[in-house]
Design a protein around this nucleic acid. Structure first.
Lengths: 336, 336
DNA sequence: CTGTTAGCGCATTCAG
DNA sequence: CTGAATGCGCTAACAG
């Protein structure tokens, strides 16, 4: 960041204002002068100071992405798609990782506010429902944000996520059609929006096909491999459902591991399925039937929406639901 | 970003200079004035404008992290650890994803320069050896950078990574001690530094134990699941080595999948091992023997080093090698 | 078409 | 201990 616009102006024998015009590709500059400026820029290897630019423009051309858990490859994929989306639009991306703690989420948002991001894309922290002060803060400051892949229920805000209710309905219906009767769902905290949606779709399918269900066909754990293991040992092996729907691939992998160890045939004795299509889902010992959440599309729509808000488009807050995609593999029976 | 330091000064009935002193916890302010300022800050809900601060300080308190491939959970873990490290030190992290393309790496670095990062942590792009101009550029501008987990060979630069030579030596030695004779390595482009290191350690072990090897005991592919699959179908099934060392967990997973399908017993017929301890490595059908790369430590050391450089500590460029950790699981035979 | 001027919000002299 | 003045690098009026 050595040389400044002044140096360029001097070398090109013109004023900083003209240099600025050239640099920003603005019209109204003599072709000759423009050339001189370009040459000076090249000769000096000049690059504009974004910080100064941001200060005067009162915009940073930067969007903040806050992700709840980067250790989950699902969010790695999300970050990947977001980055691609930003590249396409020439926007800077700055990443925050909340690690599923609201306290971190708050702190990240505070920092992003101070650094002047133009808008925020937020994967809400698990169990962060109670304390939404920081989001109201954003709203007050006029910094737009949109939820992605999930939302807090306590605040009316733009959201782009998979239509989990419908996806869950389709997955459950498929299982029923393959002959499964006793279908169990392994989920997280049921008060979370994305969990609610899945359960709703599941119930809708059961009802439609006239299947009975009881309260305890929903099992609640924190979604990860270990809990997939323990829930199987403690519950599934005793309950012996015909099929399981796990909230994510990690949980499903834990479940399958224990089933295998106990010589429960998948899918004959127990079918297993889940949400999220991790890259490995297909090369597991028993490839998983999954609902794929179309992250590419979610990212595109989310950034579209956020950009509109940034550019001043007001209007009602939207809840955009993107259809999920049911991918049938060998962990569930084949539909004849 | 509504109210400014001026508003605070006005409300506290003092000058902006004094407010600045208070905000930066500088001494030489009357306790009384300090209190008044603090109150004004709270009342106005004032937050400093980082952009303005950065401009005048000529520092951004931001470090850029450039990762080659965020779809690989290994780098997700890296990002996670980096974020934690930055949090601890109160430094902002800005992420770039090169997607293993030098062109992207260059562009990200250019953008980071313009945004004035204080330093850069770089996971080099695969096959990016030939074009190091952007790194020399950084050096010229006095922006320090340190390589992590791998380095380009063409430039003398600070690097923090696993001691892959030693780790590879230990892994190979272990396999030999469990009775394996014909050991094959599946790697990437052999001219890459991190690959070179692994191969060197492998050879050292073979030599030490007086085992014969031939050129074609090194198989070169781009590391991913599909190539793990194809290399097994095309080479390993015919060559029938006693043991395989894969460059990463993905490749190993692809290999194991095909072996399983062909009823080759792991580890009896063929032992499988790899670098990188993914979370799933332990819950696979056959849990993988791996070399764990201690990312937490690598991140800590890398940031330590980078901070020193940022604060002006010169001196010879360092190559810090962190010991890897051999984790024995069921995909290799047990040492009696 | 070009140059001069005046800030963006803040931190830092340096008098008082 | 405090406040007025200066400028970080850039852009946006506005004259010329």
């Amino acid at each position: 960041m050595r040389c400044t616009i002044k140096d360029v102006a001097k070398l090109a024998a013109t004023s900083t204002a003209t240099v600025s015009l050239v640099l920003n590709n603005r019209p109204g500059v003599n072709e000759n002068t423009r050339k001189r400026v370009m040459e000076a820029v090249k000769k000096l290897n000049y690059r504009p100071n974004q910080t100064a630019r941001n200060l005067i423009r009162q915009r940073t051309n930067t969007i903040g992405l806050i992700v709840s858990d980067i250790l989950n490859p699902y969010y790695g994929e999300l970050a990947y798609n977001m980055q691609k989306e930003m590249n396409r639009r020439n926007i800077n991306l700055t990443l925050g990782i909340s690690n599923n703690k609201v306290a971190n989420e708050k702190q990240i948002i505070e920092s992003m506010i101070q650094r002047g991001v133009d808008g925020i894309l937020l994967v809400p922290a698990r169990n962060g429902e109670k304390d939404l002060q920081h989001l109201y803060e954003l709203r007050e400051l006029g910094i737009p944000f949109v939820f992605i892949t999930n939302r807090y229920k306590g605040i009316e805000a733009d959201t782009v996520m998979t239509d989990l209710e419908q996806a869950s309905y389709e997955l459950t219906s498929y299982l029923i059609k393959t002959g499964e009767k006793k279908i169990v769902m392994v989920v997280e905290n049921q008060s979370l929006f994305h969990v609610e949606q899945r359960i709703a779709g599941y119930y809708r399918a059961l009802k439609e096909y006239g299947l009975h269900w009881s309260e305890d066909s929903i099992i609640e754990v924190e979604a990860n491999i270990e809990n997939g293991v323990s829930v199987t040992q403690n519950v599934l092996l005793k309950k012996k459902p015909d099929a399981v729907i796990a909230i994510n691939a990690f949980t499903a992998m834990g479940i399958m591991k224990v089933l295998r160890e106990n010589h429960i045939a998948i899918p004959e004795d127990m079918a297993v399925s889940c949400f999220d299509d991790l890259e490995y889902a297909s090369i597991l010992y028993t490839p998983l039937t999954v609902v794929r959440q179309p992250l590419d599309q979610i990212c595109r729509e989310a950034v579209d929406l956020l950009e509109k808000r940034i550019h001043g488009e007001e209007g009602e807050k939207k809840l955009e639901l993107i259809p999920g995609e049911l991918i049938i593999r060998n962990s569930t029976k084949i539909l004849k």
